[in-house]
Amino acid sequence: MSWTDVADVLAAACLLAGAGFALVAAIGVLRLPDLLSRMHAATKPQVIGLVLVLAGVALRLREPSALGILALVVVLQMSTSVVASHMVGRAAFRAGQVRHDLLVVDELGDEAADWQEPRGAP
């Protein structure tokens, strides 16, 4: 058993685990009750699923030049998904898309009350 076999087995495990995380995240996006909870599930394939799948690809390709591109993909996806998730979360809160009956503690709600009327996302 050479090291390429070991790398192949590791790659297979990474690919399966990454795809599994993506599947669970999709189930979460479908099942969870409100928008912000769904966003928590959405973070998962964007971070750990992507890292696992791309690690699997790197272990399978075994080229140093491909490694650079894959690392760049991870960095770019992480830095952009942060921007997107913050913008969507803020828009959800400002548009009143939060189910307050699911909140145990709400330390923003009373402060945000006098910002503006909830506009209601279309």
Partner: peptide, 24 residues
């Protein structure tokens, strides 16, 4: 990231409804 991913997966797959919080 690993720990929280497993936790969120458990939350997604269990039957109990989920409660959240907004923390400052």
């Amino acid at each position: 990231v690993v720990r929280a991913s497993l936790q969120v997966s458990a939350v997604v797959l269990r039957r109990r409804p989920v409660r959240n919080a907004v923390v400052a």
